[in-house]
Simulated scan of single mutants.
Amino acid sequence: MTAKIKKIAVLTSGGDAPGMNAAIRAVVRKGIYHGLEVLGVKKGYEGLIHGEFITMNLGAVADIIHRGGTMLMTARSPEMMTPEGQKNAAEQLRYRDIDALIIIGGDGSFLGAQTLSAQGIPIVGIPGTIDNDISGTDLTIGFDTAVNNVVQAVSKIRDTATSHDRTFLVEVMGRDCGNIALQSGVACGAESIIVPEIMPDMEDIMAKLARGHQRGKNHSIIIVAEGAASAFKLGEELRQGTGFETRVTILGHIQRGGSPSAMDVVLASQMGGKAVEILCAGETDRMTAYVNQEIVSLPLEIAYGERRPLNRALYDLANQLAI
């Protein structure tokens, strides 16, 4: 990138994550601070392909910092998976003399970014996904809020579990990644945590329930990541194996909703500002990352690398604390 950046665009892609609006706000205001013209792309790559651009001024991002979801919206785009769709997306940017694109999203969104970069479009990615499964960064936008949403829900569920002497299995998001289950399970003192990365030991889980029952504890909380197993099947297996009454609660998309936590707002604001700085410095094919409590710039290709493994030490500690 040798030409001076004058006009940039920003879009959100993939699943929405609390804090995306704070990142959009930071990109827009930091861009304007540096004298850039900023456009927003509605509905992610689908909107990019079909030219759904809006002008982003200071007023456009007023009072969005505390709102969940994404004001630019997001949508699946099968068309972006085709060479023709990718070509059309790049042409839409060139037609409007847009010098660079900032993409807020997860690993699938970054793969789309790679196709645009291959066509000569300067790109910076901001990791926004509640799963916290992007390589290279310790945290992604939305993860902290999702964990807090689970903990708040489990706090309510535990009240009724205690009242009725029941074992509750709470299913949380995480098809391939157990970060939400692990972090929230530790935070709410779950008796067992079941994640996709580790095969559940049903005998050990039943033994924990039995030990708790022997010391007068007749209610338990088990956190299950959706990709690990069916909570309903596990609940039935536990009921048959222990004789304890079980109930299942699937939290679903409630985990994505609501105002972002303070942590996510600050993280998103820092990453949004850093993305603009990266472009102004003449760099491309980069991603913002949270590493050792600092926001840094890393090669975008790192995001496509091997996913950071589950924190096994934290998983083992959770089991030790739930004896």
Rank of each mutant, 00 (worst) to 15 (best):
R166N: 10
G185P: 06
K217L: 14
A268M: 07
G258I: 10
G258S: 02
G241P: 07
G235M: 12
A225N: 03
G257R: 05
H253Q: 06
R239A: 15
P196F: 11
A228W: 11
M206Q: 04
T242L: 09
A268V: 00
L234R: 08
E203H: 05
D204E: 15
E236I: 04
I194T: 12
L238P: 14
G212I: 00
L209Y: 14
L251Q: 04
M199H: 07
G227D: 01
K208R: 15
A181E: 12
A161F: 01
R175E: 03
V195W: 04
I221E: 14
T242D: 08
G174Y: 05
E203N: 11
S163G: 07
S230K: 11
H253P: 00
I221R: 14
G185M: 05
A161D: 05
V195C: 11
A153P: 09
A187H: 00
A228D: 12
K156P: 07
R158G: 02
S163I: 03
Q255F: 01
A229W: 07
V224K: 15
V224T: 14
I157M: 05
E171W: 05
V195M: 10
M206R: 03
F244A: 10
A268C: 02
H253L: 00
G174W: 08
T246M: 10
M202F: 11
E197H: 03
S184P: 04
V154G: 12
K217Y: 09
Q214I: 02
A207W: 00
D201M: 05
V266N: 01
A181M: 13
V170C: 07
R175N: 02
R211T: 00
V154T: 13
R166C: 03
A268N: 03
V172E: 00
L209E: 13
T162F: 13
S220R: 13
